[in-house]
Design a binder for these strands. Structure first.
Length: 279
DNA sequence: AGCGGAACCTGTCGGC
DNA sequence: TGCCGACAGGTTCCGC
């Protein structure tokens, strides 16, 4: 489900509510998500600790606790965190309840049970954080960095952008949208991109991610904010999920292809495959 | 290096 | 109506 803007939205909304709240008690209804610790160890590691803040790294959501400890969560496709009034019984896809000291319930739910919850004493110990690449909203993500990183890779650009060990946070929706905005074919061998293309890719990546965060993420089916409201960026998507619709720029029907087992949407006219390597 | 395929798990949707 | 396959915002592992 969530890519960088959705996780950023959740982190910001949690950050407005949960800092200084203590986790009094945890109820576990299904423990598939727990990484590295058994259910009892998970509860013992977190109960009684206070949430200092929430942050995001790539698509990972991080709860910073005191005394020092971290809960690092990857929501994968359908994971969610929500704040709720106390409930009598868990709803169908509720997996864990964190009872906070002000009486509210921090609910972790996950329809498909792909999501993960990892507890570590130091962030450096988190396996899920270890292999992440550069954050695309950081200053280091610029044309000089990207140009050097792309050199030598023949991987199709769309797949390259989704590799979390290179850039952390882009997924299937935003990779398609960014390439459309930059006017670059998703099938371009990565090292073919010329200097101008690299610069467009950097600026469109930043622009689209910032706008998506401003719109609280994209809700196509599952994604919900902490208060169960939907995001609004789906209203600004140009190509994702729009196979056959006219391109907003040139009216050519939007195409859909499969790359690495995933759907890619693009405009064949606005995003032509380069004819030759641009050196 | 990089690709295809399968797996993890559950639900929905479209076609026949 | 009912069954069956395809597909879903992600990642990882295995084999070629």
């Amino acid at each position: 489900m969530p890519e960088l803007p959705e996780v950023e939205t959740i982190a910001r909304e949690l950050n407005a509510k949960v800092p200084r709240r203590r986790i009094d008690r945890i109820e576990i209804f299904r423990d598939d998500a727990l990484v590295g610790v058994p259910r009892k160890g998970f509860r013992a590691a977190l109960e009684g600790r206070t949430i200092r803040e929430c942050s995001r790294r790539g698509k990972l959501l991080i709860f910073h606790l005191a005394p020092e400890r971290y809960l690092v969560s990857h929501l994968r496709m359908t994971g969610k965190f929500a704040l709720s009034e106390p409930l009598a019984a868990p709803l169908p896809h509720h997996r864990l309840w964190f009872h906070l000291d002000d009486g509210t319930l921090l609910v972790y739910q996950d329809l498909r049970c792909f999501g993960t919850l990892e507890v570590v004493d130091r962030l450096a110990d988190a396996r899920s954080l270890a292999k992440l690449g550069i954050d695309p909203l950081s200053r280091r993500f610029n044309a000089a960095w990207l140009g050097a990183a792309l050199a030598g890779s023949r991987t199709p650009l769309k797949h390259w952008l989704m590799d979390q060990s290179r850039i952390a946070g882009l997924g299937n929706i935003y990779a398609s949208e960014i390439l459309y905005a930059a006017g670059i074919s998703p099938e371009t061998p990565s090292h073919w991109l010329d200097r101008d293309g690299v610069e467009r890719l950097v600026s469109e990546t930043r622009r689209i991610l910032r706008k998506a965060i401003e719109k609280n993420g994209t809700t196509i089916s599952d994604f919900r904010r902490v208060d169960e409201k939907m995001g609004e960026f789906q209203n600004f998507l140009r190509v994702y999920g729009k196979e056959g619709d006219p391109c907003p720029r040139c009216h050519t029907p939007i195409a859909r292809i499969r790359q690495q087992q995933r759907s890619t949407f693009f405009c064949p006219a606005c995003q032509p495959l380069p004819q030759f390597p641009a050196a």
